[in-house]
Computed example of a mutant assay.
Amino acid sequence: MSSEGATLHHRLPGDVTPVDLERLLWGIVLLSLVADIVTTFVGLHLGLSESNPAARGAIESYGLGGMVALKAGAIGVGLVCRPLLEREYRAIVPAGLAVPWLAAAILNVYTISTVV
C-alpha cells in the first residue's frame, strides 16, 4: 500500500468550508475586540483597574490609542503568521485572537456587574 500522491482533505460538518469558517471567525475577532475595549474602558471609568500588565501600560501611556495599537499589533502578528499554515488550518489564527478577547470581555462584564 502506498501513500504516494495521496492528499488529505478536511471537511467540516455541513456545507462549511475552512474559508467560510475563517471568515466567520474574523468577524468574531472584530466583535470580541470591540467588546473587550469597550468593557475595559467602562470598567476603568467605574474605578476598576486593568489586570493585564501590557494593556495597563499601553492604556496608562497612550489611552484608547494605546489599547487599539496593542490589539492591532496582535492582529498583525496573526496576519503575518497566517500564510505559514495550510489553508485548512488558517482558522486557528482568528480563533486564537477571538477566544481570549471574548473571555476578557465576558470577565469584564461580570466584574462590572459586581460594582454597578
Rank of each mutant, 00 (worst) to 15 (best):
S3E: 13
E4T: 11
A6R: 03
A6S: 05
T7K: 10
R11M: 07
L12M: 10
P13K: 00
D15T: 10
D15L: 11
V16I: 14
V19A: 06
L25H: 07
W26I: 02
I28S: 07
I28L: 14
V29P: 06
L30Y: 05
L30W: 08
S32N: 06
S32L: 06
V34S: 09
I37F: 02
V38M: 04
V38G: 01
T40R: 14
F41V: 11
G43N: 07
L44A: 15
H45G: 12
H45Q: 11
L46E: 11
G47V: 05
G47N: 04
L48Y: 06
S49T: 15
S49R: 15
S51T: 15
S51Q: 13
P53N: 07
A55Q: 08
A55S: 12
G57R: 15
I59H: 06
E60Q: 15
S61Y: 00
G63T: 13
L64M: 13
L64W: 15
V68S: 06
L70F: 14
G73D: 05
G73P: 09
A74I: 04
G76W: 14
G76C: 05
V80K: 04
C81M: 15
P83D: 03
R87Q: 06
R87A: 09
Y89I: 02
R90C: 01
A91Q: 10
A91W: 15
I92W: 13
P94K: 13
G96I: 03
G96C: 01
G96D: 07
G96T: 09
L97G: 12
L97W: 09
A98T: 07
P100Y: 01
P100K: 06
W101D: 03
W101C: 03
W101A: 04
A103T: 09
S113P: 03
V115W: 07
V115A: 04
